[in-house]
Amino acid sequence: MSVATHETSMGLDHRKLAMWIFLASEFLFFGAFVSAYLLYLDTTNRGPGVEIFDIPFTSVSSFVLLMSSLTMVLAHNSHVRGDMRGMRLWILATAGQGMVFLGGQVYEFTVFFREGLDLTQSPFASSFFFLTGFHGAHVFIGVLILLGLYSLSLTGKVKVGQDVKTEMVGLYWHFVDIIWVIIFTVVYLIPELRVGG
């Protein structure tokens, strides 16, 4: 630990350190969902399986979420430069893309319901809805936090020079994004290979 023990501490911001510690634990959380999903990939109880996925549609919403990471980092970049108007604009753009993603998920779930895939259909269905649903919940919380950050920057609670706050929100948001990078590949694309082949 070369960085360590700078007299009093590690010279790190408490909040950033805590956020990284929290994010480390989140892997164990999502990992359990992914394992259940992989375990039950073929346990469809005579209901729909992975062939039900609409890859083009999910690709678009995945792309939106990925790009929301760009706007998020631009918000932080603006905040660092003291450009609060720009920061607010990019925050709103990020929240908006998050909502688009969530809307896409609601649409996707609705379609699946109509096609006979619901939570109670099979272990496969339960684990699919659980994994993507809990990720969606994370996005939803992220949107709430973004809107909170937006309004707090309006009231002056989040000031110029307090860009660690935006960075914290960003860390969470990017994390939710990289989890989706994994989910998109492991849940959608890789099982779909078997359907194709």
Binding site: V3, L12, K16, W20, L23, L28
Partner: peptide, 11 residues
């Protein structure tokens, strides 16, 4: 700091 990356990749 490298520590943050260590947390992420250890997790």
């Amino acid at each position: 700091t490298k520590l943050f990356g260590r947390f992420l990749y250890t997790g």
